[in-house]
Design a protein around this nucleic acid. Structure first.
Ligand SMILES: [Mn+2]
Ligand SMILES: [Mn+2]
Ligand SMILES: [Mn+2]
Ligand SMILES: [Mn+2]
Lengths: 221, 221
DNA sequence: AAGTCTATTTTGAATACTCGAAATGCAAGC
DNA sequence: GCTTGCATTTCGAGTATTCAAAATAGACTT
């Protein structure tokens, strides 16, 4: 049984592998886990010895199939717990991350599957991030379109927030562009880099291209 | 910021203080926590140094007010989580203890109070054990009567199981004498030490005095 | 080729928890 | 009073995780 620390390293590595390609540099784990570089080196060596990851000296790490399976399990717990906290316990979608960060290590598979059933097998968490199923398969997100690249004047809805930093989450909360909200992109002003959209009819919001690129939109249900 | 280990020591000490009177011998903690005696001595000294308990050498320990307050918080988490797992996630009342044993250390107060509200502020867990309120006050249980001492031929219901060992829990499950079940004690055969009762009319069950003493009964709601 | 910069590794030490085994204190019995 | 027995403590050691600080390997410059 992997300790919480090991589970956190696995999840951080998986997340980085998903966002970027190839090997995960040690520095990425230093950043994600908030520890000093030497600590990561020590932990990584231990985990490599356990067969959870491969360590290329001076390069970084890569999950082994065993490590990836475990990491997907942790990610599934994290996202199902977040969904549960928001949907069932009515917690604010912007405050559940830290809670899930701790609970993901304490929820057994038995409890997890009851939660999954209770929620009706959701496929995305409150931030719109896909929830791996029991076999570790994640729904395809390659075709997702952001407010930076979506169709103009089409009625859509926010389905996912790609930047989970407290700052951006607060911004999304403010503008009301939370997952589930209806939006229509009115026009993009190339020169200024401003994207204009409306949530309620007549209520116009302007946001920068970088922000727009972090908000995934999709067809309304 | 007590670690899970410290929280477990606190809870075990509180539970022993509640069942018995006076100082808690080291051996009781050895037993409850499943560690060797030397480990308890080490931990107890560390916790005494932190002001969580008082350690009388060769005698045992006693919680300080600070330690007791923390212990009550852990107990509250444990019992509310158990209640939640049974009532909301439909888990078996006999299998929730181990889950709660881990979750009690991962559930934040914020999440706990949402669970408490969601459940409608329950006062007893699935085993009938009282749930401390937010201030650490536990409902009085001094007046509780067991099947060993209750009135004869009176329609009652099981309200609490005092022995939580897997064996006894399985026995209770078998006989159907779970909390909530209606029972009527028909007679007690002093000589043989057999207590005869019925759950459904016409369905008679015989149990020993020791078992009867572990099943608390009360008036039907 | 030599120098510089930065990511990573190494080293030494600390904290929290644990064990096994040896030592010890104390109460009870002889 | 001395011996036993059991509970408790002490001692030495190991695992997991962490940090600070010094050493080093590579990549990138000049
Ligand atoms: Mn975590
Ligand atoms: Mn999320
Ligand atoms: Mn516990
Ligand atoms: Mn209970």
């Amino acid at each position: 049984m992997a300790t919480s620390t090991v589970e956190n390293y696995l999840k951080a590595t998986l997340l980085h592998e998903q966002e970027n390609d190839g090997i995960v540099p040690m520095g990425a784990l230093v950043e994600a886990l908030g520890v000093v570089p030497g600590t990561v080196t020590t932990m990584v060596k231990a985990m490599a010895a356990q067969g959870l990851m491969e360590h290329e000296s001076r390069q970084g790490v890569r999950l082994t199939p065993v490590g990836r399976a475990l990491a997907l399990g942790v990610l599934r717990k994290h996202r199902l717990v977040e969904t549960f906290l928001v949907r069932t316990l009515k917690m604010d979608w912007s405050e559940v991350h830290d809670e899930a960060e701790a609970l993901e290590h304490a929820v057994s598979n038995r409890v997890l599957e009851r939660i999954d059933e209770f929620l009706g097998h959701p496929t995305a968490d409150p931030h719109g991030d896909p929830i791996p199923n029991q076999e570790g398969v994640i729904a395809d997100t390659a075709t997702q379109v952001t407010m930076q690249g979506c169709a103009i004047n089409k009625s859509l809805q926010v389905t996912r927030i790609l930047d989970q930093s407290p700052d951006f989450l607060a911004y999304v909360q403010d503008t009301g562009l939370k997952p589930g909200t209806r939006v229509k992109v009115l026009r993009r002003e190339e020169a200024s880099g401003v994207v204009r959209c409306e949530t309620k009819i007549g209520h116009e919001i302007a946001l920068g291209l970088t922000a727009a690129a972090k908000i995934v939109v999709g067809a309304v249900a």
